[in-house]
Design a protein around this nucleic acid. Structure first.
Length: 574
DNA sequence: TGACGACCTC
């Protein structure tokens, strides 16, 4: 088994081979891996990144048997490959076992804390590094600077920067990035102007800083000024346009780019996704020659976010075909689980779960949150609750998912209780949280409570969206408060969409209100002329009021539009 | 080894 492992480690790995390594390591766990081999595995994994990441977790099980060196490089390896949470917890385990640290391990662990925004974890490593005398190492200093910059503690970052005996362009850039990230564009510019020898990263950071605050003009000026543009510079401009929802300018820039990296393509795909232009996104996707896992993830997310779950699943199927050598990762599964939730079908959900198991995907809190949503929408609310209680850290997303889940399963009281718990825990609600709450009130028919909840959104600094208004119209309308619902639409700060008017029309049908029903129907016809359902609803309203002449009129329109088959022309008849 | 830029869940 061990020799087979050695052989595989010297190959350029395909997905199949990586799975074989997986199997080998599992099989070897019974016999125990020797420390030297562990080191060899780690180093070869580090050189290969990508697919090799899959078996690192299994190596961690064996790393106890090896030396301080293997611990250090494993922390570094995880940190370099975006497995920040695991890097932090491994470093913690190292500490508890009393294994000797190194500047390698310290700077890697700090980097991991910076990326996960774990300020407390980072500070305690800082204290420890100080005691061990690692703070004289320039890499550790830069990692500390990066940590405090990222978590927004610019005061400490500045102090570390000032105390650095030798400042290089990396330390300047880290400071610059800190100000950019915290949105302090004036200070960022000040630092930028002071950098003695700016490199491409300095320019790019400043450009994306302007782009992030929506100042594309300044971004453009710097972009033109900079001596040597690389593909990141173009991408910074590109995502700036996307963030301002200026897809036209993004498109022009994309077409003018001298070279397009995968980042450029992904930025365009997700840009189209945000604007709901799914087909344009797919067109770009199809044009790409070398697609990696991130490109697939972007396209799958696009389908999932734009309510096209079947196509998301289809693309996932294409992705895992044996002739395509790509590994789905945690992000792929987040989107795919969301697609299954939209389908409301547990069967595809459990198929996905078995895929995850087979591929060795580790359950993290985000994936668990996606699963909570899926189980709740498929009606398995107890399973959803179970997963929610197991979360190691609950955030606004998981709370919102659970609140919505309880709401759609008719447990309004529990939903409200959970909301209170969330506020108690100091977590700020967002627009999704209120969608969940309003859904809960709506399902329970709690009109007054729902209305109070809707009004309370302002207290949290939130502006109700059209969808929230739609939910309120639904709630009021079902309770027969048609006039109130209509007045609410009239008071909306933005234009109502067909969902809002449709909800009102449906309420008018339930409560046979001809007058407002006609108004609602007129808006629905205008907004969605080709949807037959609205015409039927109005016809039914007329019918229930005995206005047969009007019923006839609507039926005539429906015939003219081809919604109703005229006898003699029917396919079935012929 | 370190600094910029892309993909995830409600």
């Amino acid at each position: 088994m061990v020799s087979r492992l050695r052989y595989l480690l010297n190959q350029r790995l395909t997905r199949k081979q990586t799975l074989q390594i997986h199997a080998c390591i599992i099989a070897s766990s019974a016999t125990h891996l020797e420390p030297l081999l562990v080191n060899q595995i780690l180093l070869s994994a580090g050189n290969r990144a990508g697919s090799a990441i899959r078996y690192v977790e299994l190596i961690l099980l064996h790393v106890q048997a090896s030396c301080a060196f293997s611990w250090g490089i494993t922390v570094r390896f995880l940190s370099q490959n975006g497995r920040f949470g695991e890097a932090c917890s491994l470093y913690g385990r190292m500490q508890r076992l009393g294994i000797c640290s190194s500047s390698f391990a310290v700077s890697s662990a700090l980097r991991a804390c910076a990326r996960t925004m774990d300020k407390n974890g980072g500070s305690s490593i800082h204290t420890q590094a100080h005691k061990l005398g690692f703070c004289a190492c320039v890499y550790v200093q830069t990692a500390l600077l990066d940590l405090y910059s990222r978590v927004g503690d610019m005061e400490t970052a500045q102090r570390i920067f000032r105390e650095m005996p030798e400042k290089n362009v990396v330390s300047w850039n880290s400071t610059l990035f800190g100000y950019v990230k915290s949105g302090n564009i004036e200070m960022a510019r000040k630092i930028f102007d002071e950098i003695p020898d700016k490199d491409a990263i300095s320019w790019n950071s400043m450009i994306s800083g302007y782009a992030k605050v929506g100042d594309m003009e300044q971004a453009g000026i710097l972009f033109k000024q900079m001596p040597e543009r690389n593909s990141s510079s173009w991408n910074a401009m590109l995502s700036g346009y996307i963030d301002c929802r200026n897809i036209e300018s993004a498109r022009k820039l994309f077409d003018a780019m001298p070279q397009r990296s995968n980042v450029s393509w992904i930025t365009m795909i997700s840009g189209y996704s945000k604007c709901g232009e799914v087909d344009s996104a797919r067109l770009h996707f199809d044009q790409m020659a070398a697609k990696d896992v991130l490109v697939y993830n972007a396209m799958i997310a696009c389908y999932s976010q734009n309510s096209r779950p079947r196509e998301a699943l289809q693309l996932f199927n294409d992705m895992i075909k044996p002739n395509i050598d790509i590994f789905p990762d945690e992000m792929t599964f987040s989107s795919i689980i969301s697609a299954c939730a939209q389908l409301g079908d547990l069967q595809s959900g459990s198929w996905i779960e078995s895929c995850m198991l087979r591929l060795g995907i580790r359950m993290d809190n985000q994936l668990t949150t996606a699963l909570i949503d899926m189980y709740a929408k498929c009606g398995s609310i107890d399973k959803a609750c179970e997963l929610f209680n197991e979360l190691s850290k609950k955030d606004v997303v998981s709370f919102s998912a659970m609140i919505l889940g309880l709401g759609i399963n008719g447990r309004a009281i529990d939903a409200v209780r959970l909301f209170d718990e969330m506020i108690e825990a100091g977590i700020n609600p967002n627009l999704h949280t209120f969608s969940g709450l309003l859904t809960a009130y709506s399902h329970a028919g709690l009109v007054e409570e729902g209305y109070q909840c809707f009004k309370s959104m302002r207290t949290y600094g939130l502006m109700a969206t059209v969808d929230h208004y739609g939910m309120m119209v639904n709630l009021l309308g079902r309770a027969g408060l048609i006039e109130e619902a209509y007045n609410l639409i009239a008071s909306m700060p933005s234009q109502a969409h067909s969902g809002v008017w449709g909800a009102l029309l449906l309420a008018c049908r339930m409560h046979n209100n001809v007058e407002i029903g006609e108004i609602a129907a007129t808006h629905c016809f205008e907004l969605e002329p080709d949807r037959a359902g609205y015409y039927s609803l109005l016809a039914n309203i007329y019918a229930s009021a005995g206005l047969w002449a009007n019923v006839k009129k609507i039926r005539k329109i429906m015939e003219d539009k081809g919604f109703i088959k005229v006898p003699g022309f029917s396919w079935v008849d012929s």
